[in-house]
């Protein structure tokens, strides 16, 4: 590839990826910005002032989104990791059915399930609560955890674990010093994925949270569409920041652990 094309490729990807984000940075500092002005005719900090005021509830929503996301990813690990291991390393009667049951939420719309679950949650008194929202976020999150980790375990050799056990290591130590380091890159990526799935949810949070559980997506959604672009842009940037941060942390695992994402490529 000539360096001209290469430069073009880097620039092109940079523009396509960066423009939708850059325009939001500009909007968040705009006070008056009308067609056909290429840049705002007046700049201002009012959107950011609103974001940092209590009225915007952005701080509170940020914490709620983070808390729910963390709970979802930790629960997904606890629930998904053993299942992924069982599916990857063992054969047993009924495996096909189990696999199908566990992975079907990835390809079958969750609309009906969420609406159905809503009624059950109202009876259980966990509608309108963070707990209910965490549980409903598990529906799309856990299958991804299983899918990614099953492919990690498929390339995993249990011999080392057995050696450790023979040498007298107990279960906890074996897991901590042998299993975990081996699966860590994959686990990091899978955890990031489940976190992001929860982080980005809108309609499930809306239905199950009933407006009472306010995550960032609940704040951003009503603002998209034009009534106040500056505020929408500022909140949108707050919504992006932790996600990009998470990518920074796991980018290396994403790049160095190619087999991990390959799990999503298994039919």
């Amino acid at each position: 590839m000539s360096s001209f094309w290469r430069g073009g490729l880097v620039g092109g990807i940079g523009v396509v990826v960066g423009l939708p984000l850059l325009v939001q940075v500009i909007w968040s500092f705009a006070f008056r910005w009308y067609f056909p002005d290429l840049l705002p005719s007046e700049w201002g900090l009012h959107a950011w002032r609103y974001v940092f005021s209590d009225s915007s509830r952005v701080g509170e929503a940020l914490l709620t989104s983070l808390g729910i996301g963390l709970a979802v990813s930790l629960l997904s690990i606890g629930i998904g990791l053993p299942a992924a291991r069982a599916l990857a390393l063992h054969d047993f009667p009924g495996k096909g059915l189990v696999e199908w049951l566990l992975l079907v939420p990835i390809v079958v719309p969750g609309v009906v399930a969420t609406m159905g679950v809503h009624l059950v949650f109202i009876h259980l008194r966990i509608a309108d609560s963070s707990l209910g929202v965490v549980l409903v976020h598990l529906i799309p999150a856990v299958p991804y955890m299983i899918l990614v980790m099953a492919s990690v375990f498929a390339n995993y050799d249990t011999a080392l674990e057995e050696t450790a056990r023979t040498l007298g290591a107990d279960a906890v130590r074996t897991f901590w010093f042998v299993t975990l380091p081996a699966i860590l890159p994959g686990l990091l990526v899978a955890t990031l994925f489940t976190f992001l799935i929860s982080w980005s949810q809108y309609v499930t949070t809306l239905l199950i949270g009933g407006g009472r559980v306010i995550t960032l997506s609940m704040l951003l959604f009503p603002l998209i569409g034009g009534s106040n672009n500056a505020t929408a842009a500022a909140i949108s940037l707050v919504f992006v920041a932790p996600a990009l941060l998470a990518l920074g942390v796991t980018a290396r695992s994403l790049a160095n652990g190619p087999s991990v994402l390959g799990g999503l490529g298994r039919p």
Binding site: G78, I79, L81, P82, R85, E161, R165, A171, V172, T174, F175, T179
Partner: peptide, 10 residues
């Protein structure tokens, strides 16, 4: 054994 201990907890 490890995962199943963990599993009991979960």
């Amino acid at each position: 054994n490890t995962p199943s201990n963990w599993l009991v907890f979960v």
